[in-house]
Structure formats: structure tokens, C-alpha cells
């Protein structure tokens, strides 16, 4: 005799409604997909589905608008914080956030990031720090660790020629316009839960017009790092977390 197991009261987990069924283009082990899901969950749980405008980056996450069913603007490479600034200033009652890679945020868009944060724009910045330019094929980013290999640092990043890994979260935490900065990861279930809470806090602060929030998610990039997903996750834990330690850097409650 068979019993129907699929009952509403048995449901412990479901995909957020805002995350549609389009196949994601991300590589195995990539953090983008998990963070997309968290953003969808938070928007849904906060009831902001019709109030949110997201700003997509140029980078692997450029297609985030294919997966999350909210209004989106796709910005030029690095300019998402400027785009978000105008959207929020012209629509102070809306939830406005950017979703950016570390190249987008900390290389070409450094100026826009710093100044949006310094003006205290009431936006949330979600930044995915995978220490590399994923989309263009694994070139060195400002965040690439010393000694870390990439297609433009084939012998490993050398400080004499390429400087030091840039800690954007630490930098913006100094700015008076910024109310919340945290560095998280999504490599384990507890980490995923913490990141979700961080995104929720950032979105809540934005809606309360407290200033700029930044949630940096330290991520692996198995394709860019030329590792298996498991190796990439282990390498991230053993190397990335040393230079980019997880936890809150600022919280103006």
C-alpha cells in the first residue's frame, strides 16, 4: 500500500517563488546561485516583491535578471552604485540594491562604490568576492591573493608588480555614510543562514534609510581557480578566509 508523502504539512523547504525555473549558467560549486536564492528569499519574506529594483553588474552575475523575477536595471561595468544612487534618490520609498562582483566593485567601479557609500546612499550592495574575474576567463582581480594564480598572473600574484589584495569591505567600513558592513560566505549550511540574515539586515537598513550597507560574500570560483568544486571550497576556507576573515565589520544599530 502506498501513501502520498507530499503534503503541505510535511513541507520543510521550497524554492522561493521569485526564483524562476530558468536554467542557471553558473559553474558547479559557484556561490552566485546560492546568493541569488537568498536574495529572492529575503525579498519575498520582507514582502518587497513589487517595491524592489535590483541593479545587475557586468560579470558572471550579469544574467541575474534572468533568474530573479523582480524589476532590474543592468548597469555598465562597475557603475551599479551610481545607477542605484539615482534610482533610490528618485524613488526613496523603494528597495534598491546592487549585486556586484569584486572586479566590478573594487577595480573599475571603485570610485562609484566609495562615493555612493560616502554619500550614505540608502542602498544595499551585495558583493561576491571570488578573488578573480570569472566572466572574462579568470584574470587577476584587485582581490586576488598574493601568490594566487590567474590567467594574467600565471606565476602567482606578485606584490611588486601587482600590489596587494584590496579589502573593499574594510575600506568602506571607514566611511561615515555606511551603516552596515559584513563579510560572509555560503560554503556550509550555517554560513548560508548567516549570509541570509546579513542580506535581510542590509535590506532592512536600506528601507529604514540608515545609509549604505555592504554584504561581501567570499566565494569560490572553481572554473576560474581551475579546481574541482570541493577543492575550491577547501582552498577558499584555507586561504581566502585568512585574508578576508568572516564577520561583521560595522553595524550601526
Amino acid at each position: 500500500m502506498t501513501t502520498n508523502m507530499i503534503k503541505v504539512e510535511n513541507l520543510v523547504y521550497k524554492k522561493p517563488k521569485l526564483l524562476n525555473d530558468n536554467d542557471m549558467h553558473y559553474c558547479p560549486g559557484c556561490s552566485h546561485g546560492v546568493v541569488h536564492k537568498l536574495v529572492a528569499e529575503v525579498i519575498e519574506e520582507m514582502g518587497l516583491e513589487n517595491t524592489t529594483i535590483g541593479v545587475a553588474p557586468v560579470g558572471c552575475a550579469v544574467f541575474i535578471y534572468e533568474y530573479l523575477d523582480i524589476d532590474w536595471q543592468e548597469a555598465a561595468h562597475g557603475r551599479a552604485p551610481a545607477v542605484a544612487t539615482a534610482i533610490k534618490r528618485l524613488n526613496p520609498e523603494k528597495m534598491v540594491f546592487t549585486y556586484q562582483g569584486d572586479g566590478d566593485l573594487a577595480a573599475i567601479g571603485t570610485g562609484e562604490t566609495i562615493h555612493a557609500c560616502n554619500r550614505g546612499e540608502n542602498i544595499a550592495i551585495i558583493s561576491i568576492n571570488n578573488g578573480i574575474y570569472g566572466m572574462t576567463g579568470g584574470q587577476m582581480a584587485p582581490t586576488t591573493l598574493l601568490g594566487m594564480k590567474s590567467s594574467t598572473s600565471p606565476d602567482g600574484r606578485d606584490m611588486a608588480r601587482a600590489g596587494f589584495p584590496l579589502k573593499m569591505a574594510d575600506l568602506v567600513a571607514q566611511l561615515d555614510g555606511v551603516c552596515y558592513v559584513t563579510r560572509q560566505a555560503v560554503h556550509t549550511m550555517p554560513a548560508v543562514n548567516k549570509t541570509k540574515k546579513a542580506i535581510r539586515k542590509a535590506f532592512e537598513y536600506s528601507m529604514q534609510n540608515k545609509g549604505t550597507s555592504m554584504v561581501e560574500v567570499v566565494s569560490s570560483c572553481s572554473a576560474g581557480w581551475k579546481m574541482t568544486p570541493q577543492e575550491a571550497n577547501d582552498w577558499m576556507r584555507d586561504n581566502m578566509f585568512l585574508h578576508y576573515p568572516l564577520g561583521d565589520l560595522k553595524d550601526n544599530k
Partner: peptide
């Protein structure tokens, strides 16, 4: 808004025009 650069200003225009 006095932007930090012309690059920021034009991208603000993009964001506002997009609304």
C-alpha cells in the same frame, strides 16, 4: 546631485531614465 565624476553622473542618468 553633484556626482563624483562625469562617469558617475551619466550612469545616474541611466538609472533615473530607467525609472
Amino acid at each position: 546631485l553633484q556626482a563624483e565624476s562625469e562617469i558617475a553622473a551619466i550612469n545616474m542618468v541611466y538609472g533615473g531614465a530607467g525609472c
